[in-house]
Design a protein around this nucleic acid. Structure first.
Length: 340
DNA sequence: AAACCGGGGCC
DNA sequence: GGCCCAGGTTT
């Protein structure tokens, strides 16, 4: 990329960058929070979680002192819950040992890979290290008309990002490339007319920007029938904390069971589908009247303070509605009796 | 349904 | 270097 193109990109970024809360600061904690939340997650989804998080845990020390339940409760709904637990672990290391002073030092923290380490170091420390995320990959693939796949493509991306990096303003350059990918060089309908890099872009010259990057091979989808057991006893819900190695580790969950075939309709309180990564769960909710001693018991009000993954939240909502409908039905029945 | 998202860890 | 993670949103 020549000097004029690089200036054009940085100029575009200074004009059109989204005003995101973590772009108003160079506080490494704030930037770190945003980067961890944004992993595999769209920025629009992150925003409300980010605001809530910063209010509750305004500093790395505040986070380090928090208990895991509180952290998971604030993360509930963002998915990939391992991120939250790993982040807490890393925050405790930083609170104990102090802030990393380079990208290499950041890279040593759990949950901090090459992308995150370089993003924070370039933005907060001004270190001249490149970043490659999904946006940069797409920008690179089109700019260089590289339809490669796999490790060779990955290497080329990083080499390109390193080569085009503005060594005086690495943070601005890295964010400019990502922002361009997010706002202009979009997957399906790129706005080449608004792109500061259209002139030197190889895919634009070829007239087929959306041919790049090459589509990834599809992973096989695994389908499974799962029953969520709704234990309700004495006005409380019976939940268990998922153990390490289980799905939703650390989160509060209904007991579940994988079935060979769908549960009979007569036992079902409701159904929903839940897709995660390459798994498609066909979910059904059913009452379980037994008082299981291994469960912890929470009132409906208590549920709001727990870290409950989305699928289990859906199941609880179905059970709660069934409960409400049943009591409504009872009141109607009582009403009919009294007027009779 | 599929594609995509400001990836990381693991072997 | 290939696979898994135990998600949500958008088209």
């Amino acid at each position: 990329m020549d000097v004029a193109s690089r200036e054009g990109l940085l100029d575009w970024y200074s004009r059109y960058a989204r005003d995101l809360p973590w772009r108003r600061t160079r506080d490494p904690y704030a930037v770190w929070v945003s980067e961890v939340m944004a992993q595999q997650t769209q920025i629009a989804t992150v925003l409300p979680y980010y605001e809530r998080w910063m209010e509750r845990f305004p500093s790395v020390d505040a986070l380090a002192q928090a208990d895991e339940d509180t952290v998971l409760a604030l993360w509930a709904g963002l998915g990939y819950y391992r991120r939250a637990r790993t982040f807490l672990q890393a925050a405790r290391l930083v609170a104990r040992d102090g802030w990393p002073a380079s990208a290499d030092a950041w890279r040593k923290l759990p949950g901090v890979g090459r992308y995150t380490a370089n993003a924070i170091a370039s933005i907060c420390l001004g270190e001249a290290v490149p970043v490659v995320d999904g946006n940069v990959k797409r920008v690179y693939a089109r700019f260089c008309a590289d339809d490669g796949t796999g490790p060779r493509f990955e290497r080329s991306c990083w080499e390109w990002a390193e080569r085009v990096l503005d060594r005086e303003r690495p943070g601005q350059m890295n964010q400019a490339l990502m922002e361009l990918g997010a706002r202009v060089c979009t997957p399906r309908q790129p706005k080449c007319g608004e792109c500061p890099l259209s002139r030197p872009c190889a895919a634009y010259a070829l007239g087929c920007p959306t041919d790049f990057p090459a589509p990834a091979p599809k992973a096989e989808v695994v389908e499974r029938h799962v029953v969520f057991w709704a234990h309700f006893w004495g006005g409380k819900w019976g939940l268990r904390r998922a153990e390490p190695g289980e799905w939703w580790a650390g989160m509060w969950c209904l007991p579940t069971e994988v079935l060979a075939q769908p549960l009979a309709e007569e036992f079902s309180l409701g159904r929903f589908n839940h897709t995660v990564t390459r798994h498609r769960l066909r979910c059904v909710v059913a009452w379980k009247a037994a008082h299981d001693a291994d469960l912890a018991w929470f009132s409906t009000e208590d549920l709001k303070t727990l870290g409950i993954p989305t699928a289990h939240g859906k199941a609880l909502a179905i059970a709660l509605r069934a409960l409400t409908d049943a009591s409504e039905h009872d009141r109607m029945a009582v009403g009919r009796e009294s007027t009779a």
